[in-house]
Amino acid sequence: MAKQAKRVKSKYTKARFKRELPLHLMILPGLILVLIFSYVPMGGLIIAFQKFIPSKGMFGDQKWIGLKNFSYVFSLPGFSRALINTIEIAFWKILFGLLVPIVFALLLNELRGRKFKKAVQTIVYLPYFMSWVVLGGIFHDMLSPSGGVINQLITALGGKPVFFLGDNRYFQGTMIATDVWKNFGYGAIVYLAAMLGIDTQLYEAAEIDGANRWQQTWHVTLPGIKMIVVLMTVLSLGNVLNAGFDQIFNMYSTSVYETGDIIDTFVYRLGLLDAQYGPATAVGLFKSVVSTLFISVSYFLAYKFADYRIF
């Protein structure tokens, strides 16, 4: 193996470079975009270690203060609470965001009517495209304890009205449920596409071997989409500190800060309302480091246990 690899390397000649040049050129614009918009802005991370005064300029004479921005943010009342809320909300969102689409895709895959299948697929995919600004307003109305549709249903069934958006006991659950509802259509489409790629001969063979529907799902469908599931899991683990700013910002209020205030909303109030760029950048950097850590670990686990490599 090693010998072969060496041979391939040595064969990388001028002729080969010439032959592959168009391919390199094709990837160049994308590479430049990534450089400009993803790598160059990383230079701004130095702000996290400065007492940044905007008027002195990005590369001006700023005062270096080491990790003071970090310790300042972590010492603020409410930050640790926001961190815990973020992890809690993000964890359940990641978990249900993986499970619900898989189950839904499996169920949908079992359906026969093509038109019905397509229709359902389209309908559940639709909320994915709606902005949280719009949905926030809709949910405000639907979830209102006085006169909201959901609560009318609850009271009609003999229950007590629930203040979904104003009660700390329900706020996190509401955020998780509405987020999963909004996004599961997207995930389902990815899994359905993967299921379409499974060789039908496998099902036929399983049927001949006497496998029932459930056994076919368990032994053919699920192993067939395993790689996609692993991929989606690895990618979603990077979101462990992203609890969804758009959603929560549009639905929270002072009364549910206790369970609903997340790092992003906390930093929004700090960075944008108070114009404290240093601490805000510090939190951004902190989030990136944690996300990178999680992605790396999950990548390693995926390689080790599922023998799967994304890169």
């Binding site: 603020l76 009342p77 409410g78 002072t254 009364s255 206790e258 700090l270 108070d274 114009a275 404290q276």
Partner: peptide
């Protein structure tokens, strides 16, 4: 003030709302 006022105000407002309700 520029470092903490918003955070401190939030702290008070949260308590105020809980007291009122």
């Amino acid at each position: 003030m520029s470092m903490r006022k918003t955070t401190l105000d939030t702290m008070l407002d949260e308590a105020f709302i809980k007291i009122i309700t």
